[in-house]
Structure formats: structure tokens, C-alpha cells
């Protein structure tokens, strides 16, 4: 039931809406000049090295020489993944033989808040963007979205066949109109707000690995 139905009279919100729209109608300029769209740039000759360089600029690490069965051994983490008490793995990303499987709060959390002690979060990208190191991800649940932020270390798996050159190719691949929440993740959480000195781990993950797997 709308506010209008409830109170039986026009409420402020409706006034504001119609007044703002009327102001915009009155102020609207003539249609803008036609403009050129930028043609989507082609995939660079060596996408892997460009992706690695851009991810590096973001503070992330690209892992290129790993396989779907051994990638945890290629991570540069302060401890082996098996040593972490709290791990969240997106469905299909676990490798129990290397100690990578949901456990601790990653398994038991009832609410997003419970995930704060999380050590490691493993996600799988829908695709990754070569020009900027960003990976598109749609969290499967509120917990997964929280896990990606609350974990100390973030690992994103992606595949060579799912690389796109630029954001121009990225947006047509999404179904934003059906996505409640989705994000580009491009590196660890970082800040430079104190004298422009770069610090990784501002609020969220201190490290971020993007693991590029063959198909």
C-alpha cells in the first residue's frame, strides 16, 4: 500500500517527485549533438602479460603457471592455505587435497557478521578484463559477498577463455538487469589516504591473487 493510500492525501514524496521532474522538463536543453562511440579495442597480442601488469598496478598478483589441481601451491601467502582456520570457497572452487575447502566460520557462519575472522576467500570470476585486471563476480549469497570483503586473503579463479580486452566487451556480457548485486574485484582493499603512501588491506583483503587457469 502506498503512502498516498494510507493517508488518503498526497504526501511530500509525490510532491517532490513531480516538482523535480517538472523542473527537469522545463530546464532540459535541446538534444545533444550526435557523438561517436568508441569501437571496442581488440584483444592485445599478449593478454596475459598485460593482465598481469594491470593487476600488479592494483596491488594484486596474477598466477599464470598453475593448473586446476595445483593452484593453491602457487599462492604467495604468509602461510599455506591448509594452515588457515577459516576459509570460504565458492561452490566448485575447493581443492581439499591442498587444504582449500570451506571451514571454520566459512562453513558455520549464520550471519555475515560471523565471517569477520575469515582468513581466506576463494571465488570464481565470470570473466576478467585484461585492460585493468578486474574480474566480474556475482556473489551467490549475502555470506559470499561478505566473505570476499572480510577475508584477509582473496583468491579469484578465472579462465583464459573468459578474458575480455576491455570494459567495452565486458558490459554486453553481463545481465545487469537481472543482477541484484555484482562487482568488479580488481585487487586487495587499499588506501593511500595518509600522505599518498600505498597501504594494502585498508578494510578488506590484504592480498589478492588472480589465478588464470586453462580451460
Amino acid at each position: 500500500m502506498s503512502a498516498r493510500e494510507k493517508t488518503g492525501r498526497k504526501v511530500d514524496g509525490d510532491d517532490a517527485r513531480s516538482e523535480i521532474l517538472a523542473r527537469l522538463e522545463a530546464a532540459a536543453p535541446e538534444p545533444g549533438e550526435p557523438f561517436q562511440r568508441v569501437p571496442a579495442p581488440a584483444m592485445p597480442d599478449d593478454p596475459t602479460s598485460l593482465l598481469g601488469a594491470r593487476l600488479g598496478q592494483n596491488g594484486g598478483v596474477l598466477v599464470t603457471n598453475a593448473s586446476a589441481t595445483d593452484w593453491p601451491t602457487h599462492l604467495d601467502l604468509p602461510a599455506s592455505p591448509a594452515a588457515f582456520a577459516h576459509v570460504h570457497c565458492q561452490a566448485g572452487t575447493a581443492l581439499p587435497e591442498h587444504g582449500v575447502a570451506s571451514r571454520g566460520v566459512g562453513l558455520e557462519a549464520k550471519a555475515v557478521h560471523d565471517l569477520s575472522p575469515l582468513d581466506l576467500c576463494v571465488l570464481e570470476a565470470e570473466f576478467s578484463v585484461v585492460e585493468n585486471g578486474a574480474s566480474w563476480h556475482v556473489p551467490a549469497s549475502a555470506l559470499e559477498r561478505g566473505a570476499a570483503l572480510l577475508a584477509e586473503h582473496l583468491v579469484i579463479l578465472t579462465r583464459r577463455s573468459r578474458l575480455v580486452a576491455t570494459l567495452h566487451q565486458a558490459y554486453p556480457r553481463m545481465t545487469l538487469g537481472h543482477t541484484g548485486f555484482g562487482w568488479f574485484l580488481s585487487g586487495p582493499s587499499k588506501t593511500a589516504d595518509i600522505e599518498q603512501a600505498l597501504v594494502l588491506g585498508a578494510h578488506g583483503p590484504r592480498t589478492m591473487h588472480l589465478v588464470l587457469l586453462d580451460d
Binding site: A142, G182, S189
Partner: peptide, 18 residues
């Protein structure tokens, strides 16, 4: 930077954590 670390696209209220 080539892109910011988080580029988040919101549309619906966040999923309920149940």
C-alpha cells in the same frame, strides 16, 4: 589506476543471510 579496486553494481536489497 586502470580501475578502482571495487566497482560494485547494486540493484536489489542485499540478499538475506537467513
Amino acid at each position: 589506476q586502470p580501475i578502482s579496486t571495487y566497482t560494485s553494481h547494486f540493484r536489489a536489497p542485499r540478499a538475506d543471510d537467513g
